[in-house]
Design a protein around this nucleic acid. Structure first.
Lengths: 158, 158
DNA sequence: TCGAAACAGCACTATTCTAGTGCCGATTAA
DNA sequence: TTAATCGGCACTAGAATAGTGCTGTTTCGA
């Protein structure tokens, strides 16, 4: 039901935490790495799952990893240059909304039987784009700023 | 991964079909009912699942049902007065986005361990509202109008 | 009155997805 | 050399999804 996975949830928690750490640092200071263990000690989440999420974020280019004893992760870019779309995409792959209406315009495999006469392919594809646009417009910075409206949809009224 | 269920997919197909039938009728004419079997004959979807979806839509007040031999379903309201939010809500319940950040502000049960220190509860709740606002803004009429942009996000530019 | 068409409700199975865990290897600072 | 840490593979258990079966109820029409 339009739900994010736990892995995404844990990844977001870690990212927001890193963004908050970054916000507390003096400007220009290099971001120190933080280990998966350290994050897991702060938040009561399964450490193993958290590590899984962090790994995906590293593979998605959102985090940089350092191995070895004093190793860990840090943001590869400032928080205001990381979109929620990127994050979700890294953690659970590009969104589909339906099985047939993926990112690619054409059906890759002969998966959908309805496709030749499907009346909702095109509308749902555009809807997916709309949701994705919403996600792309939300930055990690906005997520970390707890008092603000991350979507920007309601900022006009207050 | 932010995916709609098949049941929702089938329900949407049926609804869009009904909306297209309605659009082809002379204005003011009463909508005739169409049976689940008839819809299933048009689109190659599992008839049983389709019937399930239609039943949910009836329970959600979006469709009216008539039983008996010449029975079937029809829209209980004009297509431009039915929102996608209603439809999805009827077919798969209110959206949650995460397990803890449901519609209700407070956690109903002691479900989420992270909640006391969770840095993403509030941002995700607002994000969910944003998605829902998007869904509420899309009408069945807009979905049935294949050439148009159902979200309205891109209509300004053309 | 009877039968067929159609909705309504319950229960069941199989498959897929999700959540979580275990283990071992590679890397690196101390 | 040791311990901390990331990295990758595989595995289990539980939940959700997809789909089917069966029976009951309503209603039209012969």
């Amino acid at each position: 039901m339009l739900r994010l996975t736990k892995r995404t949830e844990y990844g977001l928690i870690a990212l927001v935490h890193m963004a908050e750490l970054a916000a507390a640092r003096p400007p220009g200071a290099e971001a120190e790495v933080i280990s998966a263990r350290a994050i897991g000690d702060i938040f009561p989440v399964p450490k193993r799952m958290l590590a899984e999420a962090l790994k995906h974020l590293q593979q998605g280019g959102i985090l940089e990893s350092t191995r070895g004893v004093r190793g860990g992760y840090r943001l590869s870019r400032p928080a205001d240059q990381v979109s929620l779309g990127e994050i979700v995409s890294a953690l659970e792959g590009p969104p589909a909304l339906t099985s047939c209406a993926g990112m690619g315009a054409a059906t890759s495999e002969g998966s959908c039987e309805v496709e030749p006469v499907c009346p909702i392919r095109s509308p749902l594809a555009r809807l997916r784009t709309g949701i994705w646009t919403l996600f792309e417009g939300v930055t990690l910075q906005a997520l970390a700023d707890r008092s603000a409206d991350p979507t920007g949809l309601f900022s006009a009224t207050g």
